[in-house]
Design a binder for these strands. Structure first.
Lengths: 222, 222
DNA sequence: TAACAAATCCCCGAATTAGGGGATTTTTTT
DNA sequence: AAAAAAATCCCCTAATTCGGGGATTTGTTA
C-alpha cells in the first residue's frame, strides 16, 4: 500500500517537481496538490493523505495556521513542514501547532522521500539545523560568560558560607529534603539542621524557599 | 583535519567496534575511549575531542551527569548520546543537560558516522523515535493560543499553569509561606494548598524547594 | 447541554521544617 | 597556646507542609 501524500505549496514549480518525485516512486502516491490552504479541511478530507507536506509561506491561511486546523480535525494525519526559511519563530510555532517534521527546501529529493517514510512510521525528520534549534528550545539558557570571579577576592554575594554550607545549600536547591541531604552528605539529620540554621542566619532568611530563591538569584551556588 | 571523537561506554565490545569504525574511516580519529565517566573532565582534557559519544547507563557518574559536567567545562564540545533505551526521562534529561544529539544503539555504523559529522557541523541528529519524543515535549503544553507569541523567545517551560497558579508560584518564589500567600491573594489557606497541589502536579515536583528552583531556573515566573 | 478547566473551600493524618536550647571534636587563625 | 570558625551531633516544641480524600461555583468548550 503506497503512502498517500498531499502537498500544500504556493510555488507551482515545487508542486510539479514533488508530483514527479512522489508519483514516480513506487510506494508513494500523490493524493492531492493545493496552491493554498484556504480550504484545507476539504482538501484533506478529499485527498485522504497519510502524510501532508506543508509549506509555511502561503497567501491566505498560512502553513502554521493550516497545521493547527489539520491536527485538530485529523489528529492522525502527520504533517511535515517544508520551507525555505528556518527562523526560530516559525520552527517553534510549527511544532507547537502539531507538525511532525520540519525540513528545508534545499533537501535532496531522495532525502525527502526518506523523510516522508520516516514521518509515516512515526518519526520526526528534521534538517540538521532545525533539529539543533529544537533542542535549543528545550535546553535552559545557560550561563554564557562563565568565569566572572576567578580572582582571589571573595564574592560579595557569598555571605561567608563555609564550603560545607554551600554544599548543603546546593543540595537544597536541587530539591532535597533534610533527610536526603543527610544521606547524600553522610552526616546525621541533626547536623543538616545545624548547618541549615547557620545558613539561614548568614543569608538572613527563615525558610527553605527563601534560601533556594536567594541561592539561585544571587548565584551563591552554581 | 580528522574529526576527533571520544567515547564513553561501559560496554567494552561497543567500545571496540566503535574504535574500529572510527579509526578505520578516513576523516575520523578516535581520540579516546573510556569505560566510565568518573574522570570525565580529565579524560576530555586529555583527548581533546571535537565530538563525544556518550552512553547513558554507566556505573558511577552516569551519562546525563557527565554531559552536564562536560558542557559546563567545555561548552564547545558537542556531545551525542548513544543508548540502548529511549525512555522519556532520559531523552529529556540528556537534552536539558546539553546533549546535541541522541541516537539509539541499533543505529547502523554508516549512520553513526553521518551523525558524528552532523553534530560536528552543528546539527542535532536524533533517531526517528527520539525526534518524535522531542517534538512531543514541545507540543505537550497544549496548543499555544491563537496568537503565536513571536515577540520574544518562546517560553517552552510553561507547564500549562493557570494565571492564578503562576501568581501563587510567584509568591512562593518570593519566600512566602502558604499563610502569607493566602493573605496576599485574599484567599483561604486551603485554597492555596489546592493550587499548590496542582502546581506540583504540573511541574512534576513534590516540595516547595523543587518548585521554587524550577520556577526560577526555567523562568516560569519572572 | 454536557464536559471540562479554573478557582474556591474543607478535613485528616503523617511527614517535614523552624526555632530554641545545648554539646563535642577538629581545623584554622591569631 | 588561645581564640575562632567549622563540622559534627542531640532534645523539645511549635509551626508548616504534604498527600490523600473530598465539595462547590463559575465560566468556557465541545
Amino acid at each position: 500500500m503506497a503512502i498517500r501524500v498531499t502537498v500544500f505549496d504556493d510555488n507551482k514549480k515545487m508542486l510539479d517537481s514533488l508530483s514527479v518525485l512522489i508519483d514516480g516512486t513506487p510506494g508513494f502516491h500523490m493524493a492531492g496538490v493545493f496552491l493554498n490552504c484556504n480550504n484545507v479541511i476539504n482538501d484533506v478530507q478529499q485527498s485522504q493523505p497519510d502524510v501532508i507536506l506543508m509549506d509555511i509561506e502561503m497567501p491566505g491561511v498560512d502553513g502554521i495556521e493550516a497545521v493547527k486546523i489539520v491536527k485538530q480535525k485529523f489528529p492522525n494525519v502527520n504533517v511535515m513542514m517544508q520551507t525555505a526559511f528556518e527562523n526560530d519563530e516559525n520552527v517553534f510555532a510549527a511544532i507547537c501547532a502539531g507538525a511532525s517534521g520540519y525540513i528545508l527546501k534545499n533537501t535532496l529529493p531522495a532525502r525527502i522521500l526518506e523523510c516522508i517514510v520516516e514521518v509515516y512510521q512515526g518519526g520526526s525528520p528534521m534538517s540538521p539545523s532545525v533539529a539543533r534549534k529544537v533542542l535549543g528550545f528545550l535546553q535552559q539558557p545557560k550561563q554564557a560568560g562563565a568565569h566572572p570571579d576567578t580572582s582571589e577576592q571573595p564574592n560579595v554575594n557569598d555571605y561567608n558560607l563555609s564550603p560545607r554550607e554551600k554544599e548543603i545549600l546546593t543540595c537544597l536547591v536541587k530539591g532535597m529534603s533534610y533527610k536526603m541531604i543527610a544521606e547524600n552528605c553522610n552526616i546525621s539529620y541533626e547536623t543538616v539542621r545545624s548547618h541549615m540554621k547557620n545558613i539561614y542566619d548568614k543569608l538572613h532568611v527563615a525558610s527553605m524557599t527563601e534560601a533556594v530563591a536567594k541561592a539561585i538569584n544571587q548565584k551563591i551556588v552554581s
